[in-house]
Design a protein around this nucleic acid. Sequence first.
RNA 1: GGCCCUAUCGUCUAACGGUUAGGACGGAAGCUUUUCAAGCUUUAAAUCGGGGUUCGAUUCCCCGUAGGGUCACCA
Length: 453
Amino acid sequence: MEDTQDKKKVVTRFAPSPTGHLHIGSYRTAFFAYLFAKKNNGKFIIRIEDTDKERSKKEYADEIFRVFETIGIVYDEKFIQSDHLDRHRALLKQLIEQNKAYVSREEAKDGSGVIKDIIRFRNPNKIVSFTDLIRGEISTDTTDLGDFVIAKNLEEPLFHLAVVVDDYDEGITHVIRAEEHIANTPRQILIHEALDFPVPHYAHLPLVLAPDKTKMSKRKGAVPVIEYLAQGYMPEALLNAICLCGWNPGTEQEIFSRTELEQLFDLDRVHRSGAIFNEEKLNWFNREYIKKLSQQEFWDHAQYGLNSSIVLDNEEHREILKKLEPLIRERMVKFEDMQLFFGRADGLVPGEFDYFFVEPSVDQKMLVWKNDTLENAKLHLTKAKEMLEQVADWTVESIQAVLMPYAESNGKGNVLWPLRVALSGREKSPDPFEIAAILGKEKTLSRINTILT
RNA sequence: GGCCCUAUCGUCUAACGGUUAGGACGGAAGCUUUUCAAGCUUUAAAUCGGGGUUCGAUUCCCCGUAGGGUCACCA
């Protein structure tokens, strides 16, 4: 495991600015930086870039930490950029003293006409090239950039300076960030050189795109990751889906454990082109992960989406709920769907499965299967009732065993449809055997009876 | 517009220069114990265009085209 002494330990970072909710794209960047560090036995740090005091909000920074926590991205260290303001100022001063930057009196760009001092970097106007770990050689003639601004004034250093100083101070070896930063890299390399800091490795990740193939933004309906979590997507599923957007290990495997990812991930298999995040596929991932949950785990999660008073306020109903597990598990996309099945806390929105708890009102016309008649439907129901009364061992299997021969000789639809409707009152539901088994003998028979009388 | 980046099914993607261009999601059809869901089977669907290089290009090079990113006293 021991690396050669001269080989520096890998340190990556995720450096968001807390100016809004972070979406899939940002967390993918974070996760890739994390995975790369893990893969190389290195360190992953998070740095909140809050140099823009007007736009940065503590609540957004808190949200990032909270999402990291629930999603399970652990960082080895965390930094708040504004804590290092003095250091940034000192180096700004140093650059000016060394004549590598200068104070420039200019009219404010906001149109106010105010004349003030800003600090510009003395651009050596040369070709800067670097090897991007994902894209290869990228070179830029920095002459086009001019003497770019690195501080608002002596007291307020800006992004480019702060990033370079912090990356150096925090020992960052690999800057892994989104593609939109490619154009910033030459500037930052110039500052590294001016400060006599070693230049880190860079890897620019492709963008996660909105469905219209442009950069994701709130305006285009980018869903904050915290929102996905709130909807009851499993963190593991979310991360799995995020991770496979722009990267894959070259095999046909799609479901990965965290450990597998930490071993398999590599920058050289990250794509160069942007990708649209496929929410349908996220749904599929989530369902796959739900399937794998133990009973206990399933209910721990399901608890989250469940707030139906009709279910929770009644001991007997809570028992029924437990029996419903297989049915809801195979119908559920995300845990928020518990509300779809069982209604909301206020009881105003009905749940799809309410009939398991409360006797449904049944539309007589719905009882009739295709071209059959209501008389026949009732006849079959009567027969079914008689047969069911004889069932001693009330399980799906025995109920089915008793009913099926009759259904087969009289037309399955003709018999089973009215029975299912009688029990559920719905056009769509699980099959009558399952409903009957969960309802219990007594309720099943009484529901049929209600229809018949 | 300048600079930079990118280009395989609708979407995410696989393919030492040699494959019937593979998989997944989604779609369609069918099967299964009516309907719903699940499951199973089958199926449609792609190498942006033009030139090279080569015995042979999805793959390498060039030119187009298209898309994207970026051009702040934001990050």
